[in-house]
Protein backbone atom coordinates (compact mmCIF):
# COMPACT_ATOMS: atom_id res chain seq x y z
CA UNK A 1 0.00 0.00 0.00
CA UNK A 2 2.82 2.35 0.77
CA UNK A 3 5.03 3.56 -2.00
CA UNK A 4 4.95 6.50 -4.27
CA UNK A 5 1.62 7.39 -5.81
CA UNK A 6 2.01 9.92 -8.59
CA UNK A 7 -0.96 12.17 -7.97
CA UNK A 8 -1.64 13.06 -11.55
CA UNK A 9 0.82 12.45 -14.29
CA UNK A 10 -1.26 14.09 -16.98
CA UNK A 11 -1.60 17.42 -15.22
CA UNK A 12 2.07 18.09 -14.82
CA UNK A 13 3.18 19.45 -18.21
CA UNK A 14 0.22 21.81 -18.31
CA UNK A 15 0.99 23.00 -14.81
CA UNK A 16 4.52 23.84 -15.82
CA UNK A 17 3.52 25.95 -18.80
CA UNK A 18 0.61 27.88 -17.28
CA UNK A 19 1.27 31.41 -16.03
CA UNK A 20 0.54 32.18 -12.40
CA UNK A 21 -2.84 33.75 -11.77
CA UNK A 22 -2.86 35.59 -8.48
CA UNK A 23 -6.05 37.10 -7.05
CA UNK A 24 -4.85 40.62 -7.97
CA UNK A 25 -4.07 39.72 -11.53
CA UNK A 26 -7.47 38.09 -11.79
CA UNK A 27 -9.13 41.20 -10.37
CA UNK A 28 -7.27 43.37 -12.89
CA UNK A 29 -8.45 41.12 -15.71
CA UNK A 30 -12.04 41.57 -14.58
CA UNK A 31 -11.64 45.29 -13.99
CA UNK A 32 -10.47 45.76 -17.56
CA UNK A 33 -13.76 44.36 -18.83
CA UNK A 34 -15.64 47.21 -17.18
CA UNK A 35 -15.26 49.85 -19.92
CA UNK A 36 -16.73 52.74 -17.97
CA UNK A 37 -14.50 52.02 -14.99
CA UNK A 38 -11.40 51.92 -17.16
CA UNK A 39 -12.35 55.20 -18.83
CA UNK A 40 -13.01 56.71 -15.40
CA UNK A 41 -9.67 55.50 -14.14
CA UNK A 42 -8.02 57.29 -17.07
CA UNK A 43 -9.96 60.51 -16.33
CA UNK A 44 -9.16 60.30 -12.65
CA UNK A 45 -5.51 59.57 -13.38
CA UNK A 46 -5.38 62.60 -15.66
CA UNK A 47 -6.92 64.84 -13.01
CA UNK A 48 -4.52 63.59 -10.35
CA UNK A 49 -1.56 64.00 -12.68
CA UNK A 50 -2.74 67.47 -13.68
CA UNK A 51 -3.00 68.78 -10.13
CA UNK A 52 0.31 67.17 -9.19
CA UNK A 53 2.50 68.34 -12.04
CA UNK A 54 0.21 70.85 -13.81
CA UNK A 55 1.43 73.86 -11.78
CA UNK A 56 4.96 73.11 -13.03
CA UNK A 57 3.85 73.77 -16.62
CA UNK A 58 1.16 76.40 -16.03
CA UNK A 59 3.33 78.74 -14.05
CA UNK A 60 0.97 81.72 -13.64
CA UNK A 61 0.75 82.55 -9.93
CA UNK A 62 -2.57 81.83 -8.25
CA UNK A 63 -2.74 85.16 -6.46
CA UNK A 64 -1.52 87.69 -9.04
CA UNK A 65 -4.11 90.41 -9.05
CA UNK A 66 -4.72 92.06 -12.40
CA UNK A 67 -7.66 94.50 -12.45
CA UNK A 68 -7.36 94.95 -16.19
CA UNK A 69 -8.47 91.34 -16.67
CA UNK A 70 -11.37 91.04 -14.21
CA UNK A 71 -14.03 88.37 -14.81
CA UNK A 72 -12.72 87.50 -18.26
CA UNK A 73 -14.02 84.45 -20.03
CA UNK A 74 -11.72 81.76 -21.39
CA UNK A 75 -8.93 83.10 -23.58
CA UNK A 76 -5.44 82.09 -24.64
CA UNK A 77 -3.85 83.99 -21.78
CA UNK A 78 -6.34 82.54 -19.28
CA UNK A 79 -7.77 79.26 -20.67
CA UNK A 80 -10.39 79.01 -17.93
CA UNK A 81 -10.90 82.74 -17.50
CA UNK A 82 -10.27 84.96 -14.47
CA UNK A 83 -12.10 85.89 -11.28
CA UNK A 84 -13.13 89.28 -9.94
CA UNK A 85 -9.55 90.15 -9.00
CA UNK A 86 -8.19 89.06 -12.36
CA UNK A 87 -6.56 85.94 -10.89
CA UNK A 88 -6.02 83.06 -13.30
CA UNK A 89 -8.62 80.34 -12.71
CA UNK A 90 -6.69 77.47 -14.28
CA UNK A 91 -3.80 78.03 -11.88
CA UNK A 92 -6.21 78.28 -8.98
CA UNK A 93 -8.09 75.12 -9.94
CA UNK A 94 -4.89 73.14 -10.37
CA UNK A 95 -3.61 74.32 -7.01
CA UNK A 96 -6.95 73.89 -5.27
CA UNK A 97 -7.29 70.40 -6.70
CA UNK A 98 -4.27 69.35 -4.71
CA UNK A 99 -5.99 70.38 -1.51
CA UNK A 100 -9.34 68.90 -2.47
CA UNK A 101 -7.84 65.56 -3.49
CA UNK A 102 -5.51 65.50 -0.48
CA UNK A 103 -8.49 66.10 1.80
CA UNK A 104 -10.42 63.38 -0.02
CA UNK A 105 -7.73 60.73 0.31
CA UNK A 106 -6.68 61.70 3.84
CA UNK A 107 -10.27 61.74 5.11
CA UNK A 108 -10.85 58.37 3.43
CA UNK A 109 -7.79 56.95 5.23
CA UNK A 110 -9.13 58.19 8.55
CA UNK A 111 -12.60 56.79 7.83
CA UNK A 112 -11.28 53.42 6.65
CA UNK A 113 -8.83 53.05 9.55
CA UNK A 114 -11.47 53.82 12.14
CA UNK A 115 -14.04 51.70 10.33
CA UNK A 116 -11.78 48.68 9.98
CA UNK A 117 -10.68 48.94 13.60
CA UNK A 118 -14.22 49.23 14.98
CA UNK A 119 -15.59 46.60 12.62
CA UNK A 120 -12.77 44.15 13.31
CA UNK A 121 -13.07 44.48 17.08
CA UNK A 122 -16.84 44.11 16.95
CA UNK A 123 -16.63 41.19 14.54
CA UNK A 124 -14.03 39.31 16.55
CA UNK A 125 -15.35 40.04 20.02
CA UNK A 126 -19.06 39.52 19.47
CA UNK A 127 -21.31 39.68 22.51
CA UNK A 128 -21.55 42.84 24.54
CA UNK A 129 -18.58 44.67 23.06
CA UNK A 130 -20.02 44.08 19.61
CA UNK A 131 -23.41 45.36 20.72
CA UNK A 132 -21.83 48.48 22.26
CA UNK A 133 -19.76 49.24 19.17
CA UNK A 134 -22.70 48.75 16.83
CA UNK A 135 -24.76 50.99 19.06
CA UNK A 136 -22.05 53.63 18.68
CA UNK A 137 -22.07 53.12 14.91
CA UNK A 138 -25.82 53.57 14.75
CA UNK A 139 -25.50 56.66 16.91
CA UNK A 140 -23.05 58.21 14.46
CA UNK A 141 -25.25 57.25 11.54
CA UNK A 142 -28.23 58.98 13.07
CA UNK A 143 -26.47 62.27 13.82
CA UNK A 144 -27.34 65.16 11.52
CA UNK A 145 -23.96 65.58 9.94
CA UNK A 146 -23.82 69.01 8.39
CA UNK A 147 -24.94 71.08 11.41
CA UNK A 148 -22.59 69.10 13.58
CA UNK A 149 -19.69 69.56 11.16
CA UNK A 150 -20.29 73.29 11.14
CA UNK A 151 -20.48 73.42 14.90
CA UNK A 152 -17.28 71.42 15.44
CA UNK A 153 -15.32 73.47 12.93
CA UNK A 154 -16.68 76.71 14.32
CA UNK A 155 -15.70 75.67 17.84
CA UNK A 156 -12.25 74.23 17.21
CA UNK A 157 -10.85 76.00 14.17
CA UNK A 158 -9.29 78.88 16.03
CA UNK A 159 -7.91 76.74 18.82
CA UNK A 160 -6.24 74.33 16.40
CA UNK A 161 -4.94 76.94 13.99
CA UNK A 162 -3.33 78.66 16.93
CA UNK A 163 -1.27 75.57 17.64
CA UNK A 164 -0.15 74.29 14.23
CA UNK A 165 -0.70 77.23 11.91
CA UNK A 166 -3.71 78.11 9.84
CA UNK A 167 -3.39 75.91 6.76
CA UNK A 168 -2.31 72.76 8.51
CA UNK A 169 -4.77 73.38 11.32
CA UNK A 170 -7.74 73.64 8.98
CA UNK A 171 -6.53 70.65 7.00
CA UNK A 172 -6.23 68.44 10.06
CA UNK A 173 -9.56 69.60 11.42
CA UNK A 174 -11.44 69.07 8.16
CA UNK A 175 -9.87 65.67 7.50
CA UNK A 176 -10.58 64.47 11.02
CA UNK A 177 -14.13 65.72 11.07
CA UNK A 178 -15.00 64.31 7.63
CA UNK A 179 -13.27 61.04 8.48
CA UNK A 180 -15.08 60.85 11.79
CA UNK A 181 -18.43 61.01 10.01
CA UNK A 182 -17.72 58.50 7.28
CA UNK A 183 -16.38 55.39 9.01
CA UNK A 184 -19.71 53.78 9.86
CA UNK A 185 -20.37 52.04 6.56
CA UNK A 186 -16.88 50.56 6.57
CA UNK A 187 -17.30 49.40 10.16
CA UNK A 188 -20.54 47.61 9.33
CA UNK A 189 -19.05 46.04 6.23
CA UNK A 190 -15.96 44.81 8.06
CA UNK A 191 -18.00 43.47 10.95
CA UNK A 192 -20.26 41.51 8.62
CA UNK A 193 -17.24 40.17 6.75
CA UNK A 194 -15.57 39.13 9.99
CA UNK A 195 -18.67 37.34 11.19
CA UNK A 196 -18.79 35.20 8.08
CA UNK A 197 -15.05 34.78 7.62
CA UNK A 198 -14.22 33.71 11.13
CA UNK A 199 -16.43 30.65 10.69
CA UNK A 200 -14.66 29.67 7.47
CA UNK A 201 -12.78 26.40 7.41
CA UNK A 202 -9.48 27.96 6.46
CA UNK A 203 -9.57 30.12 9.57
CA UNK A 204 -10.24 27.07 11.70
CA UNK A 205 -7.53 25.20 9.82
CA UNK A 206 -5.04 27.99 10.52
CA UNK A 207 -6.05 27.86 14.18
CA UNK A 208 -5.56 24.10 14.22
CA UNK A 209 -2.09 24.65 12.85
CA UNK A 210 -1.13 26.92 15.71
CA UNK A 211 -1.90 30.45 14.51
CA UNK A 212 -2.47 33.01 17.25
CA UNK A 213 -5.58 35.17 17.40
CA UNK A 214 -3.74 38.26 16.18
CA UNK A 215 -2.32 36.27 13.30
CA UNK A 216 -5.72 34.89 12.37
CA UNK A 217 -7.13 38.41 12.19
CA UNK A 218 -4.20 40.03 10.44
CA UNK A 219 -3.16 37.33 8.00
CA UNK A 220 -6.27 35.29 7.38
CA UNK A 221 -9.44 37.26 7.99
CA UNK A 222 -8.54 40.86 7.12
CA UNK A 223 -7.06 40.22 3.65
CA UNK A 224 -10.21 38.31 2.72
CA UNK A 225 -12.41 41.16 3.94
CA UNK A 226 -10.51 43.77 1.97
CA UNK A 227 -12.43 43.67 -1.33
CA UNK A 228 -15.60 45.40 -0.12
CA UNK A 229 -13.50 47.76 2.02
CA UNK A 230 -11.56 48.96 -1.04
CA UNK A 231 -14.82 49.61 -2.83
CA UNK A 232 -16.20 51.51 0.15
CA UNK A 233 -12.95 53.46 0.37
CA UNK A 234 -13.26 54.80 -3.17
CA UNK A 235 -16.79 55.97 -2.45
CA UNK A 236 -15.47 57.59 0.74
CA UNK A 237 -12.94 59.62 -1.24
CA UNK A 238 -15.75 61.02 -3.36
CA UNK A 239 -17.88 61.71 -0.30
CA UNK A 240 -14.99 63.51 1.41
CA UNK A 241 -14.34 65.72 -1.61
CA UNK A 242 -18.01 66.66 -1.69
CA UNK A 243 -18.01 67.29 2.06
CA UNK A 244 -14.96 69.53 1.82
CA UNK A 245 -16.55 71.45 -1.06
CA UNK A 246 -19.70 71.87 0.99
CA UNK A 247 -17.79 73.19 3.97
CA UNK A 248 -15.74 75.54 1.83
CA UNK A 249 -18.84 76.67 0.00
CA UNK A 250 -20.40 77.56 3.33
CA UNK A 251 -17.29 79.55 4.14
CA UNK A 252 -16.18 77.23 6.93
CA UNK A 253 -13.46 75.38 5.09
CA UNK A 254 -10.10 76.71 4.08
CA UNK A 255 -9.33 80.47 4.23
CA UNK A 256 -9.91 82.55 1.08
CA UNK A 257 -6.30 82.52 -0.03
CA UNK A 258 -6.37 78.72 -0.46
CA UNK A 259 -8.57 78.17 -3.49
CA UNK A 260 -10.00 74.69 -2.99
CA UNK A 261 -12.70 73.72 -5.46
CA UNK A 262 -15.46 74.35 -2.97
CA UNK A 263 -13.97 77.71 -2.02
CA UNK A 264 -13.84 78.70 -5.70
CA UNK A 265 -17.54 77.93 -6.01
CA UNK A 266 -18.23 79.97 -2.89
CA UNK A 267 -16.38 82.96 -4.32
CA UNK A 268 -18.07 82.56 -7.70
CA UNK A 269 -21.64 82.44 -6.46
CA UNK A 270 -22.18 86.22 -6.45
CA UNK A 271 -21.04 86.57 -10.04
CA UNK A 272 -22.99 83.74 -11.64
CA UNK A 273 -24.86 86.18 -13.89
CA UNK A 274 -21.92 87.77 -15.64
CA UNK A 275 -19.10 85.21 -15.09
CA UNK A 276 -20.64 81.70 -15.23
CA UNK A 277 -17.26 80.22 -16.22
CA UNK A 278 -15.95 81.02 -12.72
CA UNK A 279 -18.36 78.54 -11.16
CA UNK A 280 -18.53 76.21 -14.12
CA UNK A 281 -14.94 75.01 -14.15
CA UNK A 282 -14.44 74.24 -10.44
CA UNK A 283 -17.86 72.61 -10.46
CA UNK A 284 -16.87 70.53 -13.45
CA UNK A 285 -13.66 69.50 -11.69
CA UNK A 286 -15.59 68.29 -8.64
CA UNK A 287 -18.16 66.56 -10.81
CA UNK A 288 -15.62 64.75 -12.99
CA UNK A 289 -13.53 63.66 -10.04
CA UNK A 290 -16.45 62.35 -8.01
CA UNK A 291 -18.13 60.64 -10.94
CA UNK A 292 -14.95 58.94 -12.08
CA UNK A 293 -14.13 57.79 -8.53
CA UNK A 294 -17.60 56.30 -8.23
CA UNK A 295 -17.27 54.45 -11.52
CA UNK A 296 -13.85 53.18 -10.53
CA UNK A 297 -15.45 51.98 -7.31
CA UNK A 298 -18.13 50.22 -9.35
CA UNK A 299 -15.51 48.50 -11.46
CA UNK A 300 -13.58 47.47 -8.37
CA UNK A 301 -16.69 45.98 -6.83
CA UNK A 302 -17.20 43.80 -9.87
CA UNK A 303 -13.52 42.92 -10.02
CA UNK A 304 -13.13 42.08 -6.35
CA UNK A 305 -16.37 40.24 -5.78
CA UNK A 306 -15.34 36.60 -5.46
CA UNK A 307 -18.82 35.36 -6.32
CA UNK A 308 -18.56 36.77 -9.81
CA UNK A 309 -16.80 34.23 -11.94
CA UNK A 310 -16.52 35.00 -15.58
Amino acid sequence: MAGSIPASAIASPAAAARPRIGPWREAWRRFRKHRLAVASAVVLGTIILAVLIGPLFWSLPIDEIDFTARLEGPSLAHPLGTDDLGQDLLARILYGGRISLAVGFAAMSVAVSVGVLVGAIAGMAGGRLDAALMWLTDLFLSLPQLPLLLLIIYLFRDALTGVVGQELGVFILIVTVIGAFNWMQVARLVRAQFFSLREKEFVEAARALGASRARLVWRHILPNALGPVIVAATIDVAAAIIAESTLSFLGLGFPPDIPTWGRLLFDAKDNLDFAPHWALFPGLAIFLTVVSINFVGDGLRDALDPRRVQ
Binding site: G210, H220, P223, N224
Partner: peptide, 24 residues
Protein backbone atom coordinates in the same frame (compact mmCIF):
# COMPACT_ATOMS: atom_id res chain seq x y z
CA UNK B 1 -0.89 26.93 20.18
CA UNK B 2 2.50 25.40 20.64
CA UNK B 3 1.14 21.87 20.52
CA UNK B 4 -0.99 22.53 17.44
CA UNK B 5 0.89 21.35 14.36
CA UNK B 6 4.25 21.10 16.17
CA UNK B 7 3.18 18.07 18.17
CA UNK B 8 -0.29 17.27 16.85
CA UNK B 9 -1.27 17.98 13.25
CA UNK B 10 -4.87 18.29 12.14
CA UNK B 11 -6.37 17.55 8.73
CA UNK B 12 -9.83 18.83 7.97
CA UNK B 13 -12.73 17.37 6.10
CA UNK B 14 -13.15 20.11 3.50
CA UNK B 15 -10.04 20.56 1.41
CA UNK B 16 -11.90 22.94 -0.89
CA UNK B 17 -12.36 25.59 1.76
CA UNK B 18 -9.63 24.87 4.29
CA UNK B 19 -7.00 26.86 2.42
CA UNK B 20 -6.92 30.63 2.50
CA UNK B 21 -7.80 31.83 -1.03
CA UNK B 22 -5.60 34.94 -0.93
CA UNK B 23 -2.23 33.27 -0.36
CA UNK B 24 -0.22 30.80 -2.40
Amino acid sequence: RDIRSKEIGFIFQEPMTSLNPVYT
